[in-house]
């Protein structure tokens, strides 16, 4: 299995939302639906403060509860990777996968009703390109690559910097890392 992942540097991210617009235009999403979003976390009291910006999306977990819970196999892994996709032709819209995702990273596609989500832009990955969000980021704070390959940019970043993942305690083994 090839494990793709994202590494996002919260210290360089400015929370501009370019990733969100790039995702929406690249993937032609209807207005009002989002596959990614940006969170700003401020800690401390004036004037002793820190901020952290996080571009968030599906974590393409190694233990993908959404895939496990899908009754029809519509939620599946792309090829031999951890990229979680939904096949609209198999999706009944039962929404179990939505409930199964601790990150609330899935959405109901309008008007069709099947379940949609971040695809890590597998149509771009297939061509050797980065996902749209990563390749649009004006601060270059987002990185994409193969996590188990020690020479990849993402692996090198993870080896050299402090990091965290979101909701580690759920046991989902997310593959989007945040440098802190």
């Amino acid at each position: 299995m090839i494990r793709y992942g994202m590494v996002i540097d919260t210290q360089l991210c400015i929370g501009c939302g370019d990733c969100v617009v790039a995702c929406k235009t690249e993937n032609k999403l209807p207005a009002g639906l989002n596959r990614d979003w940006v969170v700003e976390a401020t800690r401390g009291r004036y004037p002793d403060l820190t901020t952290e910006f996080r571009s968030e999306r599906c974590n393409h977990c190694s233990h993908a509860t959404c895939v496990h819970t899908c009754p029809t196999g519509a939620s599946h892994l792309w090829k031999d990777t951890n990229i979680v996709l939904v096949d609209p032709g198999k999706c009944t819209g039962c929404k179990a996968c939505i409930a199964a995702c601790p990150y609330d990273a899935r959405l109901i596609m309008t008007p069709d009703g099947y379940i949609d989500k971040c695809t890590f832009c597998h149509h771009r990955v297939e061509k050797g390109e980065d996902p749209a969000c990563v390749s649009s980021c004006p601060t270059h704070c987002m990185h994409f690559g193969i996590l188990d390959e020690p020479s990849s940019a993402v692996s090198r970043l993870l080896a050299s910097r402090q990091q965290k993942v979101l909701l580690d305690e759920t046991g989902n083994q997310p593959n989007v890392y945040y440098l802190i």
Binding site: C16, G17, D18, V21, A22, T25, S135, S136, C137, P138, H140
Partner: peptide, 11 residues
Amino acid sequence: SMGRLCTRGTG
């Protein structure tokens, strides 16, 4: 732009 548009340019 060094090859990358900003939020507004992307929109």
